[in-house]
Write a protein that binds this DNA or RNA. Structure first.
Lengths: 228, 228
DNA sequence: GTCTATATGTAGATAGAC
DNA sequence: GTCTATCTACATATAGAC
């Protein structure tokens, strides 16, 4: 989660307003394109065109394509981590922690931002789904998300003192992948169920799904083939 | 991207043994590289080098890069669908269907192939995870996986006559994403739990997780904030 | 079927004028 | 900071000899 950007390391004077706009426009455009077409599917030229600036300004402001990509992933990851840990602390302060509460503290901040701030956060979910599945970005993923994930796993593990930590961790990874599936594949759920729907109402269903799954994974296996 | 492979449409004579080997080597090499680096991150030249054949043979045998990619995704998808539907039929024939049994019929064939036939099937899981998350391959995904998915959703929905089909479908999509997370991110689970493990033992845990989740999602919401 | 050679386009990154 | 022009490398795909 340490994200030194080399281009900024020794900035001498305050940048002009226009320069700041340019830099922000490049970041937003790059986020949209990377999310839609992937890292290799997006060119520096595409980004310049989308941001309506010269393509050489992309390298000038943000260095190499890899550095730009890492910058995009980390800026929202940090914001998300803060919101998630704050929600977790608030939940703990409210009384005895519950699994539903912990999961809501993790899922909620993203869902809220995706609904409030709109398409940029939705694009970001696709970006996270991509980097999570790609070994090329393993280090980046670990830096951005693992510290917070460990804290949430700790919190859940505290609810199941008798459970193996492996099982809790596995359940948490499954839960995160389910959240990404919700965020990136509403079209898929809609297509399979013949009825698209809004996002917020899915949060509670997602929490219900994951909480039941983690509880089942944490407890010793019940009678085999229990049926429905 | 229409399943016809132009190069094969009117083959006149039986191909030589060497030609068959070349064609198979290209497919396997392409599968490894596409899975490791993605579609845009893999070049035809890379594939030729990996298969130890001339890169022009890649186009000659399999047409364009897109056609080659679609061919790779579909060949194993068809094999998987057959195995899954066969397992589902066997389970139904065995007596009253159960959720655990249906999920095992869906997950089992992949896990078995990944363990038995090894790395090519593991690469394939990463490939499926990629195409599932990428709008560029939406049509390909629908053609390959949706028909079978619908049948499994039907089978699950029959166990919960009172549930909304949307909730079943959502639970199934979450379950599939969890399976892909297991197949592609063992390193992630291992890193978070400080203890990597073998794959087969995870199948039962995965089924347990998903069955509990789907059951919870299918039933009307219980008392709010039920805790652990 | 397989090879060499190549046509044609685009990639990331930078140099240097303003 | 911004722009034009360009260097160098590599991409997909094909033509044509063997």
């Amino acid at each position: 989660m340490k994200m030194k950007i080399p281009q900024e390391k020794q900035r001498q004077r305050a940048p002009s307003k226009r320069a700041l706009e340019t830099r922000a426009a490049i970041l937003d455009a790059a986020e949209r394109l990377f999310a839609a077409r992937g890292f290799d599917g997006t060119s520096i030229r595409d980004i310049g065109k989308e941001a309506e600036v010269q393509s050489s300004l992309v390298n000038h402001h943000w260095g190499s394509k890899e550095e730009l990509f890492a910058r995009i992933v980390t800026r929202r990851a940090d914001e998300l981590s803060i919101a998630r840990l704050s929600a977790l602390a608030a939940h703990n302060h409210r009384g005895t922690p519950t699994l539903d509460g912990i999961l809501t503290a993790f899922f909620g901040p993203y869902i809220e931002k995706a609904e409030a701030a709109g398409p940029q956060w939705q694009a970001y979910a696709r970006l996270v789904a991509m980097v999570s599945a790609d070994p090329q970005w393993k280090e980046l993923t670990e830096r951005c998300f693992d510290p917070t994930a460990r804290l949430f796993i700790d919190a859940i593990a505290a609810l199941f003192p008798q459970a193996r930590r492996d099982d809790i961790a596995a359940g948490f990874v499954y839960s995160v992948s389910a959240m990404l599936a919700l965020a990136t594949s509403r079209w898929r759920i809609g297509a399979l169920s013949n009825d698209p729907d809004a996002m917020t109402s899915h949060l509670k269903e997602l929490v219900q799904f994951c909480a039941a799954g983690i509880t089942a994974a944490a407890l010793p296996a019940p009678e085999p083939d229990q049926g429905i």
